[in-house]
Amino acid sequence: MTKVVTFPSPGGPVPSKARAPALATFKQVDKVFANEVTALTGLDLEIRTGEFLALLGPSGCGKSTVLRLLTGLAEPTRGEIVWGCERPQFGFVFQEPTLTPWSDVFTNVWLPLRLAGVSKHEARTRIEEALAQVGLSGFAKAYPRQLSGGMKMRVSIARALVTRPSVLLMDEPFAALDEITRLKLNDDLADLQASLSATVVFVTHSVFESVYLADRIVVMAARPGRAFAEINVEAPPIRREGFRLTATYADTCRRTSNALHEAMGEAAPSELME
């Protein structure tokens, strides 16, 4: 059984979301694929209702596999996932926008509702609402070739939101974007999650992104994938650019970076400087 090291927030009360009821709990979950690759071993992980949970770790540590297990696209080889309620409605945002180039923005966002048998006319209000949530109200008739990378990702997020999910799963959605666009979308996602009160499980390789967005970070170790450390982030309920300039942000980034290096079997950067 992997021991999870917990790093509490420095000073101040425990964040209220840390006391929220469990949405789903992984209990000693293993996942071995047909090619005998072990993606996860002994994973103990609790996902709490309404929180923003970041899964941080190197490639091959099973972060994306956790998302697939949550949605039911994959099943545990051993162990179990216990739900605190009925399995919720999921929205999924992938690393690439995966938009159909021959369809306009409106039609791309309609896709999951169309697959569910909802007509374009019936879906109109929900599509317009989703586009407004991501700041694309004026782009319904635009085609993907006319959009920037950041705008394409907004369309992908709108497509996930149009089903009105209670849980939003995001698999490195901003990894391919330039830094300026990525920071802007970080701000927009933080605002969106606060307004929706949805649970977000966010996969990332970025220490800085995880600390800026998350209420809680689970650092994962690879080969085989497992939870290594858990870090609570003490921050304002709605993040703003100024949070990145605070001592709390810097300290949490340091602790998270140290935990990530330790999870990969490397010396922590702070130790190398001593």
Results as ranks from 00 to 15, higher is better:
Cys61Lys: 03
Pro10Asp: 14
Glu241Asn: 10
Gly72Asp: 12
Leu53Phe: 03
Glu209Leu: 00
Arg159Ala: 00
Arg19Lys: 15
Phe243Leu: 05
Asn186Gly: 07
Cys253Thr: 00
Gly57Thr: 09
Ala227Arg: 00
Arg124Gln: 13
Ala140Gln: 11
Glu80Phe: 02
Glu179Pro: 02
Met153Asp: 02
Gly72Trp: 08
Leu55Glu: 07
Arg239Cys: 05
Arg124Leu: 01
Gly42Met: 11
Asp188Cys: 10
Leu168His: 12
Gly138Gln: 04
Lys120Ser: 14
Leu99Tyr: 04
Glu80Trp: 03
Pro236Lys: 08
Leu23Tyr: 10
Asn186Tyr: 09
Gly11Ile: 00
Val93Ala: 02
Phe174His: 04
Tyr212Asp: 05
Ala235Val: 02
His261Lys: 09
Tyr249Glu: 07
Lys152Val: 00
Thr163Leu: 13
Leu111Cys: 10
Gly84Tyr: 09
Arg240Glu: 15
Ala247Cys: 00
Val134Arg: 14
Met264Ser: 01
Pro58Gly: 00
Val37Ser: 15
Ile127Ser: 05
Pro21Thr: 06
Ala222Ser: 05
Asp188Ala: 13
Ala194Ser: 13
Ser103Gln: 14
Arg78Val: 07
Phe7Ser: 03
Pro236Val: 07
Leu185Asp: 12
Thr100Asp: 12
Ala198Val: 02
Thr246Phe: 00
Phe139Asn: 10
Gly135Trp: 00
Pro173Met: 10
Ala39Pro: 01
Phe208Val: 08
Gly135Thr: 07
Glu230Ser: 09
Leu99His: 13
Asp104Trp: 07
Phe208Trp: 12
Asp215Arg: 08
